[in-house]
């Protein structure tokens, strides 16, 4: 007689398999980045060769720098504009702005990439380059910031603003002393989200990039398509290591972060 396993057990097994599905590919990348063989096939021996090669790869370092500049600029712009949009959408009954801000978030990226490509070339006569990428990234990040800021505002008690007004605060005072501190976490969150979206974005960058300045995702794409060497593993591993470090820092930064995902 086979005993039917407890349902919780089934759930556990299924979940562990899903976790394995999520993590095994990443582990493999890391392992092969130390492999002394050009082919990502079998383990030959330990080497740091691919990391050294990466450090000597000027294009790659330049690409990393360009991507950072783009991500910082785009997230700054998107956070400013997105926060305004979030505030405006929450406070006033606007019809057009919500549609404009939220649609780019919901559309397949390729559509935004294509339309911006046509726009930059035909209307602005802008030579594609860093500026066009920054604008493109800002366009789709505004929506994300606005969503986060609005969600934060929705969760707040309106009476606090009324109280401020009753006490004779000007709109600017209300904003500066009450609204801004209250939504600051959402603004920071939006900025970070924009930053990560921008640095990771491949599709829109692919369409709006110029030639000449290497950009990180494009550089990785070319490496994958043209010459697959474990250098790709090395850069991937470094990127992952970076995030892992950040997680540890983030935990230190605020020990309560694992306590609860409050809204």
């Amino acid at each position: 007689m086979i005993k039917i396993p407890h349902r919780q057990t089934v759930l556990w097994i299924a979940s562990i398999l899903v976790y394995a599905f999520l993590y095994i590919p990443l582990i493999i990348i890391v392992v092969f980045s130390f492999n002394d063989s050009k082919l990502n096939a079998e383990w030959v021996g330990f080497t740091l060769h691919w990391y050294k090669a990466l450090l000597n790869n000027h294009e790659m370092l330049l690409a990393a720098r360009n991507s950072l500049i783009i991500a910082i600029s785009a997230s700054f712009l998107a956070t400013t504009l997105g926060t305004m949009a979030g505030l405006a959408i929450h406070r006033y009954k606007l019809k057009v702005l919500p549609i404009l801000a939220f649609t780019p978030v919901a559309m397949p990226e390729i559509l935004l990439g294509v339309s911006l490509l046509l726009f930059f070339l035909q209307v602005l006569n802008l030579t594609l380059g860093m500026l066009s990428i920054i604008i493109a990234h800002t366009t789709f990040c505004i929506g994300f910031v606005a969503i986060i800021v609005r969600a934060r505002l929705q969760g707040m008690d309106e009476s606090i603003f009324e109280a401020a007004r009753d006490l004779g605060a000007t709109p600017w005072q209300t904003f500066h002393q009450i609204t801004l501190p209250l939504i600051r976490p959402a603004i920071i969150a939006g900025a970070l989200m924009s930053f990560t979206l921008s640095i990771d974005d491949f599709v829109i960058t692919f369409f709006t990039k110029g030639v000449g300045e290497p950009i990180l995702p494009i550089q990785i794409y070319t490496m994958i398509k043209v010459a697959v060497t474990p250098e790709v593993n090395a850069i991937s591993t470094l990127l992952m290591l970076l995030t892992l470090t950040l997680i540890i820092i983030a935990t230190r930064f605020d020990t309560s972060m694992l306590r609860g995902e409050s809204k």
Partner: peptide
């Protein structure tokens, strides 16, 4: 967490896993 890694890197991982060798 896996999403902290680059989009292309995640696809590339499967090139290794599914590759003929």
């Amino acid at each position: 967490l896996p999403f902290a890694s680059n989009f292309l890197v995640r696809i590339y991982a499967w090139m290794i896993i599914l590759g003929p060798e």
